[in-house]
Nucleic acid binder design. Structure first.
Lengths: 246, 246
DNA sequence: TCAAAAGTGTTCGTGATACACCCATGT
DNA sequence: ACATGGGTGTATCACGAACACTTTTGA
């Protein structure tokens, strides 16, 4: 497990990390019928970027991704998936990082390790918006949720990375039954449908959607949820995890 | 495009390559109703491994993979797909590489760059068996096809890599219509069905399979193929590529 | 009692499955 | 002619889409 009490700090010369390899994380959350991702902001530069990190020489690649996730959200046991490796030459643009370091009061050497070429392994993660607590990293000043439909400009090729992550999420959504990772413990069928509609960006047929989900046999129906609305109260559902199915 | 006249040679100290990153390629072929992959053999060691390579500092990651493919098969324009990054600590086992280098007459230094930890980007490729010409790399003595159903022991975690590649191929097969890359220019419906049955490891229903394939609208029917068998001659088909569909 | 939302029933069309039948071909 | 493999027609079934109807709730 990752050690949140002692988050991994970036070293001045990159010692302790694998050289030339990085991780970029597209962390999805869902709130108020909007799909959101976590972004870092670098003060005085106006630059925004995906959360990321480097791999310790003593660390598995996937564990490094889990550590980054944990450090940015405070959550463990997050749904996490590799989706692509970004390794084009033209993605190496030292200008943003130089600006960030300068704004931080650091004077970057011409060939500082953070300014060189990086191969970046893209991960996407699905988290419960209500539980995640965004935490900036040591180079950034804020970490927060941004609507996927209204993203600010991002540094380097991070826009491309987000797009590819979203595409992967869309194709994985039905096949892997992962949507539930984006919802709280209990939710209504309307919540679930809204989530699917938002991710896939297309309306689902209400009755068909309900039947399809229930026919999967992975939802447990709980008590009704009285919202105070002038209408029939919906059931709450809970996702049956594999450990519960035993 | 990759330059086959001057294949990239491994440098003594790894100069010119990105450190700590490698490519492993699972190159699929199909012949005589068998799914095969390309393997390298290192003489005097009995060790066998997947084709692989390193990324030039001046080269895109995907181009490096295409270069490896081209160097091992003599083919360009190969169907190629990233499928996973292998980055566990325990995959670093210097023993096989040390044995290979020793057998080659090289005396590997204790911390030779080839013996350290590598993050490996897994690619799978689909090639026309009848066109590929297996070519060993500078460290190996032979390069050839091996039945997937009867693989020899492989070094390190290469068995795992093959398994993951096959799983990815299976899930991608229908979704991306990539099976045709494994067949010659023209083929019979029986050939195609045999390919699908071999990859998916399950029988397909003859008439249903034919209708499904034809309904995709991506097959062009050509002349009949007289095999000399005492039965009706099957049609030959050709896959309609996107450029032809315009 | 009414409107809005939730749950369920019913019909319809599509596509896969399974089976049957006919066609072509060389022995 | 006939055995063998190839192509196509047809009945059946499962499943999703679309629509309708009923139920529940608070104003």
């Amino acid at each position: 497990m990752s050690d949140q009490l002692h988050p991994v700090e970036i070293t001045p010369n990159g010692q302790g990390f694998l050289p030339g390899i990085a991780i970029d994380a597209v962390i999805f959350g869902f709130h108020q019928n909007q799909l959101k991702i976590l972004l870092l902001e670098y003060r005085n530069t106006g630059l925004m970027a995906l959360p990321g990190g480097f791999i310790l020489a003593t660390e598995n690649l996937n564990d490094a991704a889990r550590r980054v996730l944990s450090e940015r959200t405070g959550l463990d046991d997050i749904y996490l998936e590799q989706f692509y490796v970004f390794g084009d030459l033209n993605r190496a643009d030292p200008a943003p990082m130089r600006a960030i370091m300068t704004a931080k009061g650091l004077i970057p050497a011409e060939h500082h390790w953070l300014l060189g070429r990086f191969i970046s392994v893209g991960y996407y993660a699905l988290v419960d918006f209500t539980k995640a607590v965004p935490i900036p990293d040591s180079l950034s000043d804020s970490c927060g949720w941004y609507d996927l439909s209204n993203l600010p400009p991002l540094i380097q090729d991070h826009k491309t990375i987000v797009q590819k992550a979203l595409n992967t999420l869309r194709t994985d959504l039905d096949r892997k039954l992962i949507g539930f990772n984006l919802l709280p413990e209990t939710f209504t069928m309307a919540d679930l449908q809204s989530l699917y509609e938002t991710i896939l960006d297309q309306k689902q047929h209400r009755s068909g959607f309900q039947r399809k989900m229930l026919s999967l046999g992975i939802l447990e129906r709980l008590d009704k949820h009285y919202s105070g609305g002038a209408h029939k109260a919906p059931y709450l559902y809970r996702f049956i995890t594999e450990s519960q199915q035993l």
